[in-house]
Computed example of a mutant assay.
Amino acid sequence: NTAREPFNNKDYRKALNYAIDKQSIVDAVYLGKASVANTIVNPTVFGSDQKVGKIDYNPEVAKELLEKSGVKNKIIKIMSNDNPVRLQAAQIIQANLKEVGINAEIETVEWGTYLQMTAQGDFDVFIGGWVAGTSDSDIVLFPLLHSSYKGGAGNRANFENSEYDRLVELGRKSTESSERIEAYSKAQEILAEENPLVPLYYKNENMGLNKRIKNFIPVANTIHNYAAIEVQ
């Protein structure tokens, strides 16, 4: 929540990113069936730039950034709904933050309360997820972080950056693929510097398929077309 102290401090936010061992979450929670995220835009999505945003787990750098931030002895709350996968991730994050001197409490709420409190800005940090249903960066970068979408509309981090807004607006309006890719790349560079969200992981969509099923083609956004399926 960038509208609340100490998360309005850029160095503090960046320290959180360095402090979290995302690979441990992938290994322990997903048993390796996921990959560490560099940016909030999944690599299968148009406009994702995997060359920007990569922050490796480094608790020593996290400690340096915390010192630079000037924030002392702040107890923070990690909000999660009662999804067991998110709760496991929260526990790992809690342990990671403890290692760099941040005391974190986990607050578990039911789904309706989770949506209401995050929409109203009544939280410190929360664990969430997003599906890029259109396979285009616009469906990620605009609703999650454009300043006009603050609160329940999607920008629950309450992030505001005029240059970021300009870039994602350009990506939405332009009909030139190269111009859109450049705009989205620069927008992701801003996020890598500002850290309004900490990208954790891209989870795999694992599917079991009966050998009697023919002509099923999986789609990356999980909105599958079942019309051509045959059962033998």
Rank of each mutant, 00 (worst) to 15 (best):
L87D: 03
I93A: 14
E107R: 15
Q88K: 15
A119W: 03
N81H: 12
D124M: 11
E67R: 14
Q94H: 06
K68E: 07
V71R: 08
V109A: 10
D49V: 07
V100I: 08
V61S: 11
A119L: 10
A95K: 15
Y57W: 07
I55N: 12
I55T: 14
E110P: 02
Y114H: 09
I78Y: 08
A62W: 04
V71D: 10
A104W: 01
D122G: 01
K77N: 15
E67I: 12
M79H: 10
A95S: 14
E99I: 03
T113I: 11
D49F: 04
G53L: 07
A90P: 04
V71T: 11
I102C: 00
I127G: 05
G128W: 01
K72F: 05
E99V: 03
G101L: 09
N83L: 04
A90H: 07
E67Q: 15
V100A: 05
G129E: 09
R86D: 05
Q120N: 14
N58T: 08
I106F: 04
V100N: 07
A89P: 02
K63P: 03
V85S: 12
G101V: 03
T113S: 14
L115S: 13
I75L: 15
P59M: 05
N83C: 00
S80T: 15
S69F: 03
E105I: 11
A119C: 06
G53A: 08
P59V: 02
V100G: 05
L65A: 12
Q88C: 00
E99S: 14
L66N: 12
G53N: 09
D122V: 03
E60N: 13
V52R: 11
K74Y: 14
K74F: 06
K68M: 10
Y114C: 05
F126S: 11
V109E: 01
N81V: 00
Q94A: 02
D122T: 07
V125T: 13
E60G: 06
W130E: 02
I127T: 08
V100P: 03
Q88S: 11
F126C: 06
K74W: 06
